[in-house]
């Protein structure tokens, strides 16, 4: 009885709660859904109907095919996949090794190196690219996918903090008993500690993976030949210009480009959330 009375009293609050959730979910979804609707419309339909009118034929994949070909998306997906794999593998190795050394050994300069990395994270990327550009030219890294990969690995800071944090929670006694058994530091790192780092690696790979896949400013600057070296993010640039008002085509391109993110999100939602939270508490 008592419960029901308090339920009734809470009713306005409950309504307000669900109303705001529905409203903001609608706001979040509307721009993407309108794109999705438009992507299925034929040229004639797109010109004659309102944007929010549903398409007549939900199986009209013509725009998708055309967008895929026009923006050379096959090539772009291949490039993006190559970049993603190499950047992730390299930055996992570099990051975990660095974190291991910084966490487990006291040596002169340890604190200095930590603050160098911390300071680097404060510098806004766009401003730095003014001068990085010159260095990329000197290294012959313009229009070079390996060059772009190296640069992407070099500007990664946050995952190092995730690893260091994780190392702090792995007891030092593990290392010590291995040292007593005569294991070298390399063995300790690769055989004992590296496998234990798996959750931290998954977390940082998800964060870094999303960042790398979506990166377009540097990709646009350094991979200038879009036909050959375009990534999924930059290949959409093809639609600026002569095709700029054919939104049914552009929307199809946009939907194709966000499909990988959507699939990853649906399959590992939990890890993405926990990865974000872990990455944010570094400060």
């Amino acid at each position: 009885m008592n419960g029901r009375i308090s339920d009734i009293r809470k009713l306005p609050l409950t309504i307000l709660k669900y109303l705001s959730l529905c409203f903001f979910s609608f706001v979040a979804v509307l721009p993407v859904v309108s794109c999705f609707i438009t992507a299925f419309k034929t040229d004639e339909e797109y010109q004659s109907t309102n944007v929010m009118t549903l398409p007549k034929n939900w199986f009209n994949f013509g725009n998708f095919v055309q967008a895929f070909q026009k923006a050379n998306m096959g090539r772009a997906f291949l490039n993006s996949a190559i970049i993603l794999v190499f950047v992730l593998v390299f930055s996992v190795f570099i990051g975990t090794q660095l974190a291991y050394v910084l966490n487990r050994f006291a040596f002169p300069g340890n604190g200095l190196i930590r603050s160098l990395f911390l300071f680097a994270s404060l510098l806004p990327g766009v401003a730095m690219q003014v001068a990085v550009y010159e260095i990329m030219v000197k290294l012959h890294f313009i229009n070079s996918i390996p060059g772009y990969i190296v640069m992407m690995c070099g500007t990664d800071v946050i995952s190092i903090y995730i690893y260091i944090q994780f190392f702090e929670n792995i007891s030092n006694s593990l290392d010590e008993s291995a040292i007593v058994d005569g294991a070298s530091y390399f063995t300790i790192f690769y055989r004992i500690l590296f496998p234990l780092l798996k959750p931290a690696i998954v977390t940082s790979c998800i964060l870094k993976g999303v960042g790398t896949f979506n990166e377009y400013y540097a990709a646009n600057l350094y991979l200038q030949n879009k036909q050959k070296y375009g990534t999924v993010a930059t290949s959409l640039y093809t639609f600026v210009g002569p095709l700029g008002s054919k939104y049914n085509l552009i929307c199809a391109g946009v939907i194709i480009a966000l499909l990988p993110a959507l699939i990853v999100f649906i399959t590992c939602q939990k890890q993405i959330y926990s990865g974000l939270v872990a990455g944010a508490v570094k400060g």
Binding site: A28, V32, V210, N214, T234, A257, L258, A261, I272
Partner: peptide, 9 residues
């Protein structure tokens, strides 16, 4: 989800 969409898109 909007957070996961790339800037150009």
């Amino acid at each position: 989800f909007p957070f996961l969409i790339n800037g150009i898109a």
